[in-house]
Structures are given as structure tokens and as C-alpha cells.
Design a protein around this nucleic acid. Sequence first.
DNA 1: CAAAAACATTGAACTAGGACAAGAAATGAA
DNA 2: TTCATTTCTTGTCCTAGTTCAATGTTTTTG
Lengths: 192, 192
Amino acid sequence: MFEEINAYINQYTLCDVEEVKFFNSLLQHKIIGKKTFLLQEGEICKFEAFIKKGCIRTYYIDHKGAEVTLQFAIENWWVSDIASFHEQKPSRMFIETLEDCELLLLTPETKEKLLVQVPKFERMFRLMVQRNLTRLQERLFQTIATTAVEKYLDFIERYPTIPQRVAQHYIASYLGFSPEFLSKVRTKLAKK
Amino acid sequence: MFEEINAYINQYTLCDVEEVKFFNSLLQHKIIGKKTFLLQEGEICKFEAFIKKGCIRTYYIDHKGAEVTLQFAIENWWVSDIASFHEQKPSRMFIETLEDCELLLLTPETKEKLLVQVPKFERMFRLMVQRNLTRLQERLFQTIATTAVEKYLDFIERYPTIPQRVAQHYIASYLGFSPEFLSKVRTKLAKK
DNA sequence: CAAAAACATTGAACTAGGACAAGAAATGAA
DNA sequence: TTCATTTCTTGTCCTAGTTCAATGTTTTTG
């Protein structure tokens, strides 16, 4: 049940058996079907979810009604709206399963319990957020500085398994352009 | 000397006098003139700098030679290349003073010492990075989903003091468009 | 397995913003 | 206080990406 997540945390902190046991005891196991919302705009995010199985997408809706995908998360990733989760304030985003999923959840309460009992997890979460931040800085830079073709090529190189798992227009909404244009980019690349 | 930074950390954690003293003892005071690089691409970032006085900008240079500004930092903000600092690997970015500055610096060593001696600082740094991440998520969304006019209006509302302190073309490079176009946006807005 | 729904492709007309060039204004250094 | 440098503005032409609409394809569901 906990192999994947324990392997994950081991990348960040070395814990003894008791600590790992305690950590595992706090996790809530959840199975959920595809095309289901874990969070919708306006709700308060009650979870940080580790994905054991499946694929999840987080996105915003802009004032013209268009979706902007923030993240695709697959096995061994975490999903949450960090701001909403930590400050327990209404979220601006949607979190939706794209496939049937198997998740392990922390709640604000269990996370807090964990951090109080085993403070070394503070460091792990800090490092996780730091990586995330670094990645997002790169992505912002790319979004501003590169062309559609470059963005697409970088995406399929960086996340080679995602295109096989999610609809193409979701990828367009991640890269920041229209589905039609992504289609044109792809045919252009295919011709070469 | 330490009023500002101690007020800053008090927002995040309550420390007793001894802890604060220890924290302060680790900080290195630095005065540095304007138009000076604290970090250049390829170098390893040796600091996290708290700004007591002055204004600093961090930016990337893309493969066409154009600058993309990641952050303007002023009094009571921190600047660093987090990825380079923590992993002690070469940076992709430039950090440059725009005004004469007075800084308080942590190095990888002093930060580590602090975290070992006073682990509650782990939490503070985690929360700092989390806020940063949240803000960057919003900014990415905005970059993708809004027009130049909207971006500019949001910028001057969010950071009203920055336009008086930095050259306009830096703001353009933050917002992700050309200086000429920002100028046109501004004249258009002025006419209304 | 058929019908419906969701998704992808292609083309034509359009637009937000870019690139370039030239001049005006501000800042700064001696 | 002048000359040089940097910054800002304005105009013209150009292009990457959008929008809309039509058609084809794949997936889902009853």
C-alpha cells in the first residue's frame, strides 16, 4: 500500500521505521473514478494528494471562460492547491481526475500532526515546494521567451508519457495556445 | 541594524530573544552600489539576500538575447536563485542591483547552521517559498490568460512603487512584451 | 453495434503584439 | 552646461497565433 510514497519520501529525508509507520498511519486511502472533481473554484482545498495510480489535472478558468492548465500530475506526484490548503481559503482552481485514480491523502489536520510529531518533514515539504518553484520559474521564462514549436517540443521531451494519456487540447491549454494551433504545429513538425 | 529583518521573521515564527540573537549573528551585512551584479549566469549562488535598502532585479536572457525579468525586489524582500543556492549548481540567471543597496546575507553554510540549531526556521522558509510559489502560479496564469493592458494595469496596482523606481523597459521585460509596445499601451491608457 | 459526444484537423480571415527605424526626452558624467 | 548615453515615443510593416466554421476521426455509451 505504501511502497511508492515511502520510496518518495526517502528521496528527501531518511526516517526510521517508527516515523514512517506514523506517517503512513496518517494517510487516507481513496479510490476515485475518472472525470471527477477533487476541487472546484470557490471550495476550500482539504487535501494534499499523493497519486499512487492515475492522472490528474489542475487548471484555472479565465474571464473569457478558457481553461489554463497549471499541472498534469501522474504516479508519484502530489496535487493540491497549496494556498487554499494552508490558509483554508477559497480556491481559484479546479482539480479534476483524467483517469481512475488511487490516492493517498493528507488533510490540514493530519499534515499538521505530522509536522509537530516529526519535524524533519518540514524540511521535506520545503524542498518539495522549492523544486516546484524552480520548475515554475523555468516555465514562466519559457512561456514568455519561446515559440509554440519550442514549447511543444520541450513538453514532449520533458513529459514523454503525458501525450499518450491526456487529450491534446489539454496540452494546448497547458502550453498557453489554442487547440487548433497545436494541431497545426504538430502537422508542421510531422512533415519534416 | 536588524529591526526590519526581525520584524519580517516575526510574521512567520515567534522566536525567543536567544534565537533571534543567534539568527542575527549569522547575517552578513553588505553595502553595494547600483548597477552591480550579485550573480551572473554560470555562477553558483552563494547567498540569500534580505534587502534592507535598495532595489534589485533578477532576470534571464533568452536565446535571442532578450531579457526576461523574473522579479523586482525592494525593501523587506528576499532575493536569491533558490535552485542554484540549494544545490550549489550553476545558475541560469542574473541578479543585479538597480539602486545602491544595503543587504543582509545568509550563505549556504549559515543557513544550514540556522536550520540545525533552530529548526523552527524550516517552517518559516517553507512558508516563504509557498507564498512565492502561489504568487508565481497566479503570474503564469495571468501571463497566459490576459492582454497586455490587463497585465500592465495589474502590475501598477500590485506594485505601485516600482514604476517610480525602475526603468520602463524593465517593466516590459517583466510583463513579457517589448518596450515599444508597453509605451503604446501607456499612451493608449493615458488618452482615456 | 449504432448513435452521440468529444476530439482533432484544415483553411481562411483577422488581430495582438513584435521588429525596425528615427527622433525626442531625460539622465548622467566631466 | 555641454556632450554622450540611456530611455521613451511614434509610425510602418510584419508575423505568430487566434477565431470561426466546416469536416473528419475517435471514444463513449445505451
